[in-house]
Simulated scan of single mutants.
Amino acid sequence: MASVEPWVGTWRPHKPRGPIAALYGSPGPKYALPGLTGVFKHDPTKYKAPMFSCGKRYDKSSSDCSPGPRYLIPSNITRAGRDGTPAFSLHSRPKQPELFQAPGPGHYSPECSRKSVFRSPPAYSLSGRSKDMTTNQTPGPASYSLPPVLGPKTVATSAAPTYSLCGRSKTGSFHEDLKKTPGPAAYKVVDPCIYRQKPPQYSMTGRNFAPGETTKKPGPGAHYPEHVTLTKGKAPSFSFGLRHSEYISPLIVNVAD
């Protein structure tokens, strides 16, 4: 069947080879949502109904867990508690309680309770010095000497700087002998670097020489290459042995006849 509208271009509609995401409104199988059935991995936002299961029958235990007749229950103990049967025992006769000696009216002194019941002014009395005071060597107020507060030598307070003007003594000074008058060389000139900017300073040091080697080294005549036998072959060498003494016993070897 021919189309009403003419085709434009070379593209023609065809069946897609696989699913196209644009044809679906949901993300599809891209996201794995939790299920609504079962116990494991259940959706936490949904209500979970109660579930029941039929468990297996367990084997009967070989030993009974009940204590049985192991414990001896007294005969007066019932399921409702101890029975109401009276019980008696033999005890010694208790001592006769003594009568309570209640104090009479003459045992009280109401006149002595004025300081506890009524308000009373302070009262003072003069008493003699006890004998214990003779052994008490407590220092009096005159035994303490406080540090001075005035002057430069204070201990407890801060002292401001103090100055004093003294007269010049004429005894032994240049007033008696003019030779003792200080000249210009007697005063020390203040270095200008103290109160002005200090310029850079340079100094000339002695010339440094490289340290020499003074150890004795062997010359060409100190070596003997002909005696070297480690790097090349060595010719056989012979030597004359010592002459043995005639008094030494010869070597005896057992020879068969």
Rank of each mutant, 00 (worst) to 15 (best):
A2D: 12
V4Y: 14
V4E: 11
W7P: 13
V8W: 13
V8F: 14
G9L: 01
T10R: 07
W11A: 08
W11H: 04
W11R: 07
R12W: 09
R12V: 14
R12A: 08
H14E: 04
P16R: 14
G18N: 07
A21C: 09
Y24I: 02
S26D: 12
P27Y: 03
H42Y: 02
D43A: 07
P44E: 00
P44K: 00
P44W: 00
T45W: 09
K48F: 11
A49S: 10
P50D: 02
F52W: 11
K56P: 15
R57A: 11
R57L: 11
R57P: 08
Y58P: 14
Y58Q: 13
S62D: 04
S63W: 12
I73P: 00
T78K: 00
A80G: 09
F88H: 06
S89L: 11
S89H: 11
L90C: 15
H91K: 13
R93N: 04
Q96R: 13
Q96E: 10
Q96Y: 12
P97C: 01
E98H: 14
L99N: 09
F100E: 05
A102M: 11
P105G: 07
H107F: 14
Y108K: 05
P110D: 01
C112M: 09
S113I: 03
K115E: 06
V117I: 09
P121R: 10
A123V: 15
Y124T: 07
S127Y: 11
S127K: 14
G128H: 13
R129I: 11
R129K: 13
S130W: 08
Q137L: 14
Q137C: 11
T138W: 12
P139M: 01
G140L: 00
A142N: 11
A142V: 05
S145C: 05
S145I: 10
S145W: 07
L146M: 08
P148W: 02
V149W: 03
P152G: 01
V155C: 06
V155Y: 12
A156F: 14
S158G: 09
T162R: 05
Y163W: 10
K170V: 02
G172K: 00
F174S: 01
F174K: 00
F174Y: 06
D177W: 01
L178W: 03
L178Y: 05
K179E: 01
K180E: 00
P184V: 08
P184F: 02
P192Q: 01
C193I: 06
Q197C: 08
Y202P: 01
S203Y: 04
S203G: 08
T205G: 15
T205Q: 12
T205S: 15
T205P: 08
G206F: 08
N208K: 14
A210E: 03
T214M: 02
P220I: 00
G221S: 06
A222N: 03
Y224M: 07
P225V: 00
T229K: 09
T229V: 10
K234T: 15
S237I: 11
S237Y: 07
F238P: 01
G241L: 07
L242E: 05
L242Q: 12
L242S: 12
R243Y: 08
H244I: 09
S249R: 11
P250N: 05
L251I: 08
I252S: 08
V253S: 04
V255R: 04
